[in-house]
């Protein structure tokens, strides 16, 4: 494509602006990473930290040798992987029937589901429910109560609605039932949107701490984010013990924990992005 002179200037202007934006996006992570690898004195130095002047692995050694961190990591990986997969299965199971116009009482079923986007029962009844189902202190509490995200499910339904009926009809002539059609035809065609929803679900799982805080009294089964919160943000004291007794983690250890929690997602998402960009596009705009 040929550009005029004015357009060229405009292009350079854009590049400068966007580059600055990218720096603003990336710098904080470099800063924290650099601090996590610094000596204590260097970690407290004011100013820009792009890379550690003198590398100290103290913080990372400490983080990587802490059992509770690895345990929380394992629990978090479990909930992310299993939770995401089960979510996709369940959401597909609902989205497909609701996308078929000939489903009897389709409007009512849809309404039944949408109402839940606006009204909920509140903390205590939810806790009572979870307790009566025996989910307290079970890792399944991370997965089952949040199995379906209504918003994601509706996006999936909208996508399914856009898949041409002809494919389905010909399969039906061949004697396939709806379940086989969903598994063998609809799901493979929906890979991009499913990948997007999977990413949403996975990010939500990875980042969630509230359910762990409320429902998990067993310290050995808490999630990484809750552990991070306890270590980094909420180290507030209380009046019971007037004098402090415990040793606090120094700044670079905190930085290392932050990076440890952030890295898995940062490493994974660039590879998934071609799916989710496409998925958002098709999922949200299909009528």
């Amino acid at each position: 494509m040929r550009l005029t002179k004015g357009e060229k200037i405009f292009q350079w202007f854009l590049i400068v602006i966007i580059t600055m934006l990218c720096i603003v996006m990336v710098y904080p992570f470099l800063h924290v990473l650099s601090i996590s690898l610094s000596t204590p004195a260097e970690a407290l130095r004011p100013g820009i930290h792009l890379y550690p002047k003198e590398i100290s692995l103290f913080a990372w050694e400490r983080v990587l040798s802490t059992d509770s961190i690895w345990r929380a990591f394992g629990i978090t990986v479990f909930r992310t992987v299993v939770g995401t997969l089960l979510s996709l299965v369940f959401m597909s199971m609902a989205a497909y029937p609701l996308s078929r116009k000939y489903l009897p009482h389709r409007g009512y079923y849809t309404t039944f589901i949408i109402i839940t986007m606006f009204f909920g029962g509140g903390l205590i009844p939810t806790y009572l429910l979870i307790k009566s189902l025996g989910l307290i202190n079970s890792v399944w509490v991370y997965i089952i109560p949040g199995l379906v995200s209504t918003f994601s499910m509706l996006i999936l339904r909208n996508f399914f609605m856009g898949i041409p009926m002809e494919l389905e009809d010909s399969a039906k002539i061949d004697g396939a039932n709806d379940i086989r059609i969903l598994v063998q035809i609809i799901v493979p065609l929906s890979a991009p949107v499913l990948a997007t929803l999977a990413l949403w679900a996975a990010v939500a799982h990875w980042n969630n701490w509230f359910d762990a805080m409320l429902y998990m009294q067993d310290k050995t089964k808490i999630t990484l984010q809750l552990l991070l919160r306890r270590l980094v943000i909420a180290n507030m004291g209380d009046p019971m013990m007037p004098v402090p007794t415990e040793e606090e983690d120094p700044a670079m250890v905190k930085a290392a924990i932050i990076m440890f929690t952030a890295l898995p997602i940062l490493v994974v998402y660039p590879f998934l992005q071609r799916f989710f960009v496409k998925g958002v596009m098709v999922g949200s705009l299909k009528g």
Binding site: L123, I124, L128, K131, L214, D218, K219, R230, A234, N235
Partner: peptide, 28 residues
């Protein structure tokens, strides 16, 4: 009923509200 040193109250509040009453209550 093993509660956290910090943030125990949040957990304990819902626990009580679900009518689980321990025999001995937390120090704090």
């Amino acid at each position: 009923i093993k509660l956290e040193r910090w943030g125990w109250k949040e957990q304990f509040s819902v626990y009580l509200a679900s009518d689980e009453i321990p025999d001995i209550f937390p120090i704090d």
